[in-house]
Design a protein around this nucleic acid. Structure first.
Lengths: 139, 139
DNA sequence: CTGGCTGCAAATCTTTTGCATCCTG
DNA sequence: CAGGATGCAAAAGATTTGCAGCCAG
C-alpha cells in the first residue's frame, strides 16, 4: 500500500459519482501532482483484482469505477452519464440458456433514463434542436 | 438507403454475434472494398437513430451492435466477450429512487459468466497461470 | 444545383505498454 | 541487492471529424 494507492482508494471510498480514470487522475493530481496516468490505471487494475472496486461499463464513453464491490445495480442518465447506485434488492433468476451453456457468475441491471438535472436543462432549451454532445472530455 | 447501408443492415439482420464496428467493417469490406470506417460508424449511428439497431456496452473493449431493437437482455462471457441474447421475459419493476429523480426509460440486464468454449479452454491449460489477454483486436 | 452520403486521412480520446528510476525491505 | 511501484513518454485501439468529391432528385 503506497501513498498513491491510499490516495486513490480514499478518493474512491465513499464516492458516489462512479468516477472515470480521468476523474480520479485529476482529483488525485491535486495532492500528488507528479502522479501519472499509468499509475492510476495500474492501481485501479490492482484494486479490481483485489476485489476492492468494480469496473462499470454502462457509460458508453469511458470506464467508470465503483468503490462498492458488493453486487448492486445502477441507474444511468443517457444524457450526462450520471450513474446512481440502486439499493433495491432485485432478485432475478439465472436465465434458461438452451443452446448456449454458460457458467453464470453474476448479473448487473442498468436502468437508463434522464436525470432531473438534464430534464430541466432540456426543457429550458425550449424548441431548439437537441444538441448531440460529442466531446465528452469534460465528463 | 444506399447500397452501403443495405449491406450493413443485411449483415446485421439475423446476425447473432453482436458484432463490433470493426467486425462489420471487415465483413462488409469483402463486398465493398472501398468502404471506409467512417461510413460504417456513420451508418451505425443513423441506424441507431432510426431505432433499427441497438448499441451495447457490455463488452469492455468496444461497442457492440445488436440488430434486434426490441428490449431483451444478454449473457456475456467475461473471457471471450461473446454475447448471447436472452429470450427469457424478465420482469423487473422500476427502482425506487428516493434522493434522485430519474425519468426511467428502459433497462438492461446483463448476466456475465464463462461460456462453454472458454471453460474447456481453461481446463485444457491445466495448472498454468491464466493468461490475461490484453490485445483484443482479434476480437 | 443542393443536400445528403461516401471515402480518405487526420485528429481525438481512452487505455496500455516499455523502460528507466526509485523505494522498501 | 531484488522486487514491486512509479513516472514519463510513446504506442495502440476505438471512435470521431473535416473536407473534398459524388450522386440522386
Amino acid at each position: 500500500m503506497t501513498p498513491q494507492r491510499m490516495a486513490i482508494l480514499n478518493y474512491l471510498k465513499g464516492n458516489l459519482e462512479h468516477p472515470s480514470a480521468e476523474d480520479i487522475y485529476k482529483a488525485i493530481g491535486k495532492k500528488f501532482p507528479t502522479m501519472s496516468f499509468a499509475t492510476v490505471y495500474n492501481t485501479l487494475e490492482t484494486l479490481k483484482q483485489m476485489g476492492q472496486i468494480r469496473e462499470l461499463y454502462c457509460d458508453p464513453y469511458k470506464k467508470r469505477f465503483d468503490p462498492n464491490p458488493n453486487p448492486h445495480h445502477h441507474v444511468v442518465c443517457t444524457q450526462c452519464q450520471k450513474i446512481v447506485d440502486l439499493q433495491d434488492e432485485i432478485r432475478i433468476k439465472p436465465p434458461t440458456l438452451t443452446t448456449e451453456k454458460f457458467e453464470i457468475l453474476g448479473s448487473h441491471i442498468e436502468f437508463y433514463g434522464i436525470c432531473s438535472k438534464c430534464k430541466s436543462k432540456n426543457s429550458s432549451s425550449r424548441k431548439e434542436e437537441t444538441i448531440y454532445v460529442k466531446n465528452r472530455t469534460g465528463s
